[in-house]
Structures are given as structure tokens and as C-alpha cells.
């Protein structure tokens, strides 16, 4: 997994609550058996005016000029902000893969749905929870100056605003460590193989039916 330490970028504002993973990446793209290439289909129903699927070249489709990510001012943003309960619904990790492939390194919202939140940490995309009034301040800051640069400093657990103010955010120490180091979680867990085998031996005594086949 790629590491996340400090990212400085402008912000793209998606002013909606309850952005679900069906909206982030619609079902027709889930037929892909690859992990990459989902960026052009991020927010597909909102981004394009005509229907798409894996067999249609996105370059040939009609762009919806009203959708915020299509506006010239927000091109190149690596940070997305949205309202409450971002990433709700389906567990599809394709939603995080699409955000990552599009170029977003972080999403900031007042709250995230649990599975999406967990999926982000497996892919080096940082979900940052701020207070609603702080998220509101970011929306207002972007509205005033779309080119304003913000810095997310994960080791310091801070967001630095262009005016010099900072917002602090909370994160589990374990998740932060894995993200800053860019650790391979499976490799790390497999170092605990003996502990897993010991658990299985213990459990097979207590609940033998679980290991009967």
C-alpha cells in the first residue's frame, strides 16, 4: 500500500450528504475483474449526461458541465470534501479504487460509513473526520478561492488552511501507523501465524463443530 504522510492540494467541494458507493461507482463497472482503471467512471451518473459502461470509451461521452468535478476551477484537486455519512451503502472497494485512480488522496467529511472508512485505509486514501462547522468553513474557503491550497499532515493530525489556521483530527494510532508506513497488512498479519494457529487449537477444544470438516 502506498504511504500517506503530507498532501498539499486544492480542494474539490461535493456539497451532498449520504453520498453512497453506488453514486461513487455504479454497478456496471463492478464487472471489471481488475483493481485499476475506475477513475474515468468516478461519480459516473453525475459526471456524464449519457449512460456508460466498461465497453464505452469515456472520451466519447457527453460531460455534464454542471457537475462540480467537471468545472475547470476544480481540476487537479487531490482532496475531496463532502457532507455527512460519505461512502454509505454497498461495501464495494471499487469506490475507493475509483477515488484513488481519479487522483484523490484524501476525503474530508463530518462522518463516514464504516465499511468505506475501513476500505480507505487499505488503499492509502485518507478519510478525515472534521466537525461539521470545520467542514462548512472548508466549503466556504473553496467557494471564495477554488485555487486555495490546503495541507493535510497525517503525522501531525492537522489540516493547515491558507489563512494559517489549523484543524486537528482524530485517528486510531494503529491505523495512522499503518498508513504513514504504507504497510502490507496481510504480510504483517502473517508474522502472527503462530498466534493464529494457537487460537485455532484453543478454539477447536471449545467449539469442535467449527473445525469438524
Amino acid at each position: 500500500m502506498k504511504a500517506f504522510t503530507v498532501v498539499t492540494s486544492k480542494i474539490a467541494p461535493l456539497d451532498r450528504p449520504n453520498v453512497d458507493t453506488d453514486a461513487i461507482i455504479p454497478k456496471q463497472y463492478l464487472k471489471s475483474i481488475r483493481r485499476t482503471g475506475f477513475g474515468p467512471f468516478l461519480f459516473d451518473d453525475w459526471r456524464y449526461q449519457d449512460p456508460g459502461d466498461l465497453q464505452i470509451d469515456p472520451a466519447t461521452r457527453r460531460i455534464n458541465p454542471d457537475f462540480v468535478l467537471n468545472q475547470p476551477a476544480h481540476q487537479g484537486a487531490q482532496i475531496l470534501i463532502a457532507r455527512d455519512n460519505f461512502g454509505c451503502g454497498s461495501s464495494r472497494e471499487h469506490a475507493v479504487w475509483a477515488l484513488d485512480d481519479y487522483g484523490f488522496r484524501a476525503v474530508i467529511a463530518p462522518s463516514f460509513a464504516d465499511i468505506f472508512f475501513s476500505n480507505c485505509f487499505k488503499n492509502g486514501v485518507l478519510p478525515v473526520v472534521l466537525k461539521p462547522e470545520e467542514v462548512q468553513a472548508l466549503f466556504e474557503g473553496v467557494a471564495k478561492n477554488p485555487d486555495a491550497q490546503f495541507t493535510i499532515d497525517l503525522p501531525a493530525q492537522q489540516i493547515k488552511l491558507p489563512c494559517g489556521n489549523t484543524f486537528s483530527f482524530e485517528i486510531d494510532a494503529g491505523r495512522k501507523h499503518n498508513m504513514v508506513e504504507g504497510l502490507d497488512e496481510i504480510g504483517t498479519t502473517l508474522q502472527k501465524a503462530d498466534a493464529i494457529r494457537a487460537y485455532e487449537a484453543r478454539r477447536a477444544q471449545q467449539a469442535p463443530w467449527l473445525f469438524a470438516s
Binding site: 472497494e93 464504516d114 475501513s118 487499505k122 494503529g174 491505523r175 496481510i186 498479519t189 502473517l190
Partner: peptide, 23 residues
């Protein structure tokens, strides 16, 4: 019983465990 992403599917396959924060 809970839903997981594909990285966790791989983790569960490879290790029969998941790294979790208690709810």
C-alpha cells in the same frame, strides 16, 4: 456478521483473520 471490502476478502482468505477496531 459484517460486510468487507476486497482487500479484507484477501486478508480473510490469506490469514483467516481481520484487523478490526472494536465497535
Amino acid at each position: 456478521a459484517f460486510g468487507i471490502g476486497t482487500s479484507e476478502v484477501e486478508h480473510a482468505l490469506a490469514t483467516q483473520t481481520l484487523v478490526m477496531a472494536k465497535a
